[in-house]
């Protein structure tokens, strides 16, 4: 590896993060399931197909408009499992607490986790608590892991997008990242934007019921839709062409992005998914998504082509075409 020490960018999902995974973790833990390289592992135990996933949450600040680190930690792992096409069942929760954290804060966070778990119909069945001295953490870090059951026979993977497919999302993008940023110290511009944190597994169930040909399911968290779609374009060796007009973005998110010099396409989401399905099934899927409470604003935002292989392109609102690059990564640390 090129770096002597860990940098913030190693945790960002970008190039350095991939270097860590490919050069350190994969060789050390080498096995065929790990090499699926999905958000969650797909397992077969006693002839039952399961999805298993884990995620750690270090968001700063831990209370933000529209949620807190607690519901984020439950919904994040529920969504990782849901994106494997699985129905989440059980979660674990591990806490790393900094000396001095107000108990009232912890109570509020734990109550949010309980409410999120109940809403998602999953049970938090095991856990762990560690306390570190002041300064060794930042308030509270949470890890959650989860297991879900796969009940369908579809082949859903980032490698499966095909020319002729369309890309659908379930609503306005960029809300989570802007909600967090607007509350960071010193960033006092006023926005009414709330985090979109939500558990997406019932929406996924609606999609799977509407089409037997779902090719890809992903949640565009860190790196935004630009990051996730670039991974898919690379994995499937196709081009994904987005239409700028068609991408739902709140005016306030757009304005905040203009102010901060950010592209809304790279801003994190916590309650959004991207699904890629054949054009023939897109009407059915879109309708099913729009009938779900978390999918009312669902829209077809792009299509899969065979031209600029491995790239995401954007037909701008004025009709020009540009590349949407893989985001650099470390621009927005500790967003989840």
């Amino acid at each position: 590896m090129a770096s002597a020490n860990i940098k913030m960018a190693h945790g960002s999902g970008g190039r350095l993060a991939n270097e860590l995974i490919n050069e350190l973790f994969f060789p050390a833990f080498d096995n065929p399931i790990l090499k699926q390289a999905n958000d969650g592992a797909l397992l077969t135990l006693d002839s039952r197909r399961l999805a298993f996933s884990t995620d750690s949450f270090v968001v700063n600040p831990y209370f933000f408009s529209g949620g807190n680190i607690g519901d984020l930690a439950v919904n994040g792992t529920v969504n990782d499992i849901a994106m494997c096409g699985a129905l989440p069942q059980f979660l674990s929760a591990a806490f790393i607490l900094e000396e001095g954290l107000p108990i009232t804060h912890l109570k509020k966070i734990v109550n949010s986790m309980a409410a999120a778990a109940q809403a998602a119909q999953v049970q938090i069945v095991t856990g762990d608590t560690k306390v570190v001295e002041r300064g060794a953490a930042d308030g509270i870090f949470i890890n959650t892991s989860g297991i879900g059951i796969i009940q369908h026979q579809q082949q859903i993977a980032p490698q499966n997008a095909q020319a002729g497919d369309v890309v659908i999302t379930n609503g306005y993008i960029g809300d989570h990242g802007i909600a967090i940023l607007s509350q960071r110290e010193g960033l006092s511009f006023e926005t009414t934007i709330q985090s979109d944190t939500a558990a997406l597994h019932t929406l996924v169930a609606s999609i799977l019921a509407a089409s037997a040909n779902v090719h890809v399911l992903r949640d565009p968290t860190r790196g935004g839709i630009a990051g996730t779609l670039n991974e898919i374009a690379q994995a499937s060796q196709i081009e994904i062409r987005l239409e700028e007009y068609a991408i739902p973005i709140h005016d306030s998110v757009r304005a905040a992005c203009d102010l901060l010099g950010l592209d809304p396409l790279i801003v994190a989401n916590e309650g959004k998914l991207l699904t890629i399905v054949p054009l023939a099934d897109s009407g059915k899927v879109l309708k099913a998504m729009q009938q779900h409470p978390l999918g009312k604003e669902s829209a077809i935002i792009g299509r899969v082509l065979n031209q600029h292989i491995g790239k995401v392109t954007l037909e701008t609102s004025i009709g020009s075409l540009r590349v949407v690059d893989m985001p650099l990564g470390e621009q927005l640390p500790r967003i989840c």
């Binding site: 592209d263 082509l305 600029h308 590349v323 690059d325 650099l328």
Partner: peptide
Amino acid sequence: YSYSEIKIDSL
């Protein structure tokens, strides 16, 4: 660096 252009060929 952030926004590469692409040769227009297919609109």
